[in-house]
Computed example of a mutant assay.
Amino acid sequence: MKNVIKFVAIALVAVSVSSCATVFGGPITDYQRTRPAAGEPQREIRVGALVADLLLFWPGAVIDFATGAIYKPHPSATAANK
């Protein structure tokens, strides 16, 4: 029984920290959250975070896409913060 509890605890920790862009990507902007309208350019994906999600724990990619954290922030927003 102890081994089952340890396994479940480790699995829960792995799931909670596995979405790399959500955890390490910084604050999520409105640009990342909203879908582009028809005719607008598509948002760029953070390739490094996507690869890390797929290698470490693929459901983390689902979380990152759902939160919008997998997308790069708007270029003008990053230039304004510097």
Rank of each mutant, 00 (worst) to 15 (best):
M1N: 10
M1E: 06
K2P: 06
N3W: 12
V4R: 12
V4D: 14
K6G: 13
K6S: 15
K6Y: 12
F7Q: 15
F7N: 14
V8Y: 15
V8F: 14
V8Q: 15
A9D: 08
I10C: 14
I10H: 08
I10W: 12
A11G: 04
L12K: 06
V13P: 02
A14E: 02
A14F: 07
V15A: 15
V15M: 13
S16E: 03
S18E: 03
S18C: 10
S18A: 11
S19P: 08
S19E: 07
S19I: 01
C20V: 11
C20E: 11
A21D: 06
V23R: 03
V23I: 13
F24E: 01
F24I: 02
F24W: 10
G25K: 01
G26Y: 00
P27R: 09
I28F: 00
T29C: 06
T29R: 03
D30K: 07
Y31I: 04
Y31Q: 02
Q32R: 05
Q32F: 05
Q32V: 01
Q32G: 06
R33V: 02
R33F: 02
T34N: 13
T34K: 14
T34W: 04
T34Y: 05
R35L: 08
R35E: 11
R35Y: 04
A37W: 01
A37D: 04
A37E: 07
A38E: 09
A38R: 03
G39I: 00
G39R: 02
G39P: 00
E40A: 13
E40M: 10
Q42T: 13
R43E: 09
R43W: 13
E44D: 15
I45Y: 15
I45E: 15
I45H: 14
I45T: 11
R46L: 08
R46W: 07
R46N: 13
R46D: 11
V47S: 15
V47N: 07
G48T: 06
G48P: 05
A49L: 05
L50Q: 02
V51N: 00
A52C: 13
A52K: 03
D53G: 06
D53N: 15
L54A: 11
L54V: 11
L54P: 04
L55C: 14
L55H: 14
L56V: 13
F57R: 10
W58H: 13
W58V: 10
W58Y: 14
G60E: 06
A61W: 09
A61Y: 06
I63N: 09
I63D: 03
D64F: 00
D64P: 01
D64S: 04
F65H: 06
A66S: 14
A66Y: 06
G68Y: 01
G68M: 01
G68L: 01
I70E: 09
Y71M: 05
Y71P: 07
Y71C: 03
Y71W: 14
P73H: 04
P73E: 06
H74W: 05
H74R: 08
H74S: 08
P75M: 06
P75E: 07
S76Y: 10
S76C: 03
S76T: 07
A77I: 09
T78K: 13
A79L: 09
A79G: 08
A79F: 07
A80M: 09
N81L: 12
K82E: 13
